[in-house]
């Protein structure tokens, strides 16, 4: 082993907007806050398909897949992303977070499917950053 190798690593997060949802102010705020927390943030841009989110999550080898949905289509879109991650063997060592508007009744179902945490309106950035720092999987 060489002496130059180092143990510390930078946490990488994908902030993704999926589906027909043009509201990206929240995603921008989150991207900036995560950056300021010292994370590397890959921002997907608007109107991404689940396939694109999977492609980005796999190729960028992110620790955290953050999905922002305000359109109400989470029950369709999120399972497709989770399936895609599993297909590419990129599910187990990744946190999957959903942000936006998810009714309480839908939350257990998403968690059962493999979503690690859901951050709704009113969730603080500190809370989210702390969660990521604590829960980001060891690799």
């Amino acid at each position: 082993m060489s002496v130059e190798q180092q143990d510390e690593r930078t946490i990488r997060c994908l902030v993704a907007k999926v589906g027909l949802d043009g509201h990206d102010r929240g995603a921008h705020v989150i991207a900036r806050a995560l950056r300021d927390a010292g994370f590397e943030v890959i921002y997907s841009g608007l109107h991404r398909s689940p396939d694109e989110v999977v492609q980005a999550a796999v190729q960028e080898d992110v620790d955290v897949v953050g999905i922002s949905i305000l359109s109400g289509a989470h029950k369709t879109l999120v399972p497709r992303i989770l399936d895609g991650l599993r297909e590419y063997d990129a599910f187990d060592d990744r946190l999957v977070l959903v942000g936006g508007i998810v009714p309480d009744d839908d939350q257990p179902e998403l968690r059962d499917l493999g979503v690690d945490e859901i951050f709704g309106p009113g969730a603080s950035m500190e809370e989210m950053i702390r969660y990521i720092r604590e829960q980001a999987p060891e690799r």
Binding site: R35, G38, V41, Y43, E52, Q55, E60, Y88
Partner: peptide
């Protein structure tokens, strides 16, 4: 900035959306 960064080049890769044979890494 504080060790963090926002990497946005991926936004422009719209023509290869979902094509795994284009491996794009920021």
């Amino acid at each position: 900035y504080s060790g963090g960064a926002v990497l946005g080049d991926r936004i422009r890769m719209a023509s290869n959306a979902g094509d795994m044979d284009v491996f794009f890494r920021s």
